[in-house]
Design a protein around this nucleic acid. Structure first.
Lengths: 190, 190
DNA sequence: CATCAACGCTAGCGCTGCTAGAGTTCGAAG
DNA sequence: CTTCGAACTCTAGCAGCGCTAGCGTTGATG
């Protein structure tokens, strides 16, 4: 039993190592540079070992996404609780969201843009993801008025997501970013 | 000279054929199904012929994107000019934008999401793209108040883009879509 | 010590975007 | 009418991708 538990522990450590290596490689060179061969070389195992832990490359990306969600939730919470009032809370959370996407583009993409097998908007969604959404909702709540909080939060989130992705894809000029963010916040804080 | 012009004409026709085939294949089965081999087979030429017209697959996708921009601009214009007042104009344009993304997901992706070598937000951007943005701007103008029209249009556009992409990626529940769109419009017409 | 299961490896499949170089076609010049 | 040469398209192949079958080794167990 002790031997078995040691093996399980080592397996768990190796799985964590794979996820970390995938994340580091993606953040350093982008997801297109994350191939199963490079990843296997990085963790110093052969390719098939990856498939004994994950169903495929998608599943590895999903695991990285879950990790990233926790980071995002933490940063949003910090921004929200540090704000002195409701108006600066939603502004701070919005800015933190954008800053996270800017500092961790690969992480942001795997969570919100790339096609990965992750449940969203259901009870099976990762707790960290629900936590991140919850932070947005708490920041939006004081400005919801009579509107449905969930739908309004989704709308605010979508607007932030659009700003972030269009700007990073070169579709929106970077120089007006602060202006756009200000206009968005003005529309959501009445 | 007549012979040369005939050849040039035939070349142009074949180029158009490639673009159309790529678009049809993408709209029917998604961009992941558009491989240079399948595309070559579809136009009944060998692979290298594609590369005598376009620098690479990216360039073919960009050509499809430019075509799609024209379609989008036309639909936005129709929606805007058909509206009886400013309020229903922005609502109609927003709905038309979302409907276009819903009916032509592959086309939408290649214009706004996938990484293609297309100039945006510069004078060199495709006229059709500028026209589409112009339609959005005209719909937004009556509700801009003292705000910068360009930046406000970009913000509105980004919000629509976020709603569309998050919903299609399964990140937002489809059932609240109309509600979210209504909330967004309320915040931009209040 | 012999056995056998668990495990990680090598090798390879079918696919991708892309390209070098051979072979063909066809208008132009003699 | 023949011959030349340029324009053009094809076959074949490269390096890399995600993924997997099956062999060989390792190491705990009876």
């Amino acid at each position: 039993m002790s031997i078995q538990s040691r093996r399980e522990r080592e397996r768990a450590e190796r799985e964590k190592l794979i996820i970390t290596a995938a994340r580091e490689l993606a953040e350093a060179e982008g997801w297109e540079a994350v191939t199963t061969r490079r990843l296997a070389e990085r963790v110093e195992y052969s390719q098939p070992v990856l498939y004994s832990h994950f169903k495929g490359k998608d599943a590895i990306m999903a695991a990285v996404a879950v990790e990233g969600c926790a980071d995002l939730a933490r940063e949003l919470r910090t921004a929200r609780t540090a704000a002195p009032d409701a108006r600066r809370a939603i502004a701070g959370v919005g800015a933190a969201y954008v800053a996270f996407a800017d500092r961790h583009p690969a992480l942001y993409d795997v969570i919100f843009s790339l096609a990965v097998p992750l449940p969203f908007a259901t009870p099976e969604a990762p707790p960290a993801l629900q936590a991140a959404f919850g932070e947005l909702a708490e920041a939006v709540r004081p400005h919801a008025g009579g509107d449905d909080l969930g739908a309004l939060t989704e709308t605010f989130w979508a607007a932030l997501h659009g700003l972030v992705t269009l700007m990073r894809g070169g579709r929106l000029p970077r120089e007006h970013h602060e202006l756009r963010l200000g206009l968005l916040l003005a529309r959501f804080t009445g």
